[in-house]
Write a protein that binds this DNA or RNA. Structure first.
Lengths: 175, 175
DNA sequence: TTCAGAGTGTTATGTTATAACACACTCTGT
DNA sequence: ACAGAGTGTGTTATAACATAACACTCTGAA
């Protein structure tokens, strides 16, 4: 298994992290190596390991660079010659999410690799309903509407989900 | 079928719409009549009808006042003597969501009655992971982090999902 | 009165996720 | 060396959530 992408649209790097790198060419090889570097770093300290299975799933997510359902991941794993029952995918995904290397897109029941694992605290996702890609944006530092409401009533937030469905710029232009 | 609640915790009305009415006593009978009034109003103009099925499902959601899975709804429908296959629930829920009378909680795969159907545009949901209730807050008028990111890259947002998982005040106090 | 559109009933199936249990691997302390 | 704890895997089975498809009924307008 190679930690390497499919080789499409990975020519131009962008520095802005507003999310457009997903909908336009970007330095995908860097994505991959960043992500694996972060993954290894996060396993150094603890007792957990970046095992073969977990690598493979991370690799698939990075390669696709778009949300994948757990069963799509399983199919791919089988295609490359591994036996894989559902728990295999879910365990790997749980690990990756726990370590901040992947995110669940609630509105799609699907999973994506984190596009910025070094610096990912409050991601918001822009989900293109045409091409099915997802851009990950870092939320700004203003408290969200949910956080404000929570503060008012003494609700303690543990995790926020922010997702938006719509049409990405390149699909808008095609239409 | 009565458009009436179970009769618990429905004593004190609150006027603030920050969401606390879900986690504290409130005038539940008013909820119910507001919701049915809105439902009827939204059927006046069009060709669609607030049919028995749709009434029943709305009534159940209002009665529970917490998220219900589609299959929980089906169980309840059967319990009160109606045959009900999955499409029955999903069709009613689709209708209610289309008319803004119910919302889907993506992170739970569940549905709640809208707590403020007259004035509901950008709801954010606070989901208590202990008691399983959901408060619905109206988002403020600031653009969300997602909207800002979207604006920057020309992504056209159609719908936003804002959900937060955490612990509600009364469950925090019990702990 | 008939026709179109809206809604229902039903069967079957597709999709997503987890429980549970036996086993294997890898450290660590002795 | 090896026992024990903790971590991870393999596998079977099943739970939970959602939709496709088709025949039928109802209602209101032409």
């Amino acid at each position: 298994m190679s930690a390497v992408s499919k080789g499409t649209d990975e020519t131009v790097a962008t520095s802005d992290r507003a999310g457009q790198e997903i909908f336009t060419p970007h330095d995908h090889a860097a994505c991959v190596s960043n992500s694996f570097a972060a993954a290894e770093a996060r396993c150094e300290s603890g007792k957990v390991r970046l095992t073969e299975n977990r690598r493979r799933v991370l690799d698939l997510l990075l390669e696709e660079h778009r949300p994948m359902g757990a069963y799509a991941i399983l199919e791919r794993l089988r295609a490359i010659g591994y036996s894989a029952q559902p728990p295999v995918a879910y365990r790997a995904l749980d690990f990756l999410m726990e370590k901040g290397l992947a995110h669940r897109i609630e509105s799609l029941n699907a999973y994506v690799a984190c596009s910025n694992p070094e610096n990912c605290t409050n991601p918001a996702f822009l989900v293109c309903q045409v091409c099915d890609r997802v851009a990950e944006a870092q939320a700004d530092d203003r408290p969200s509407a949910a956080a404000l409401a929570a503060g008012k009533i003494g609700f303690e937030i543990e995790q926020e989900f922010r997702e938006a469905r719509g049409t990405c710029p390149s699909c808008t232009n095609k239409a």
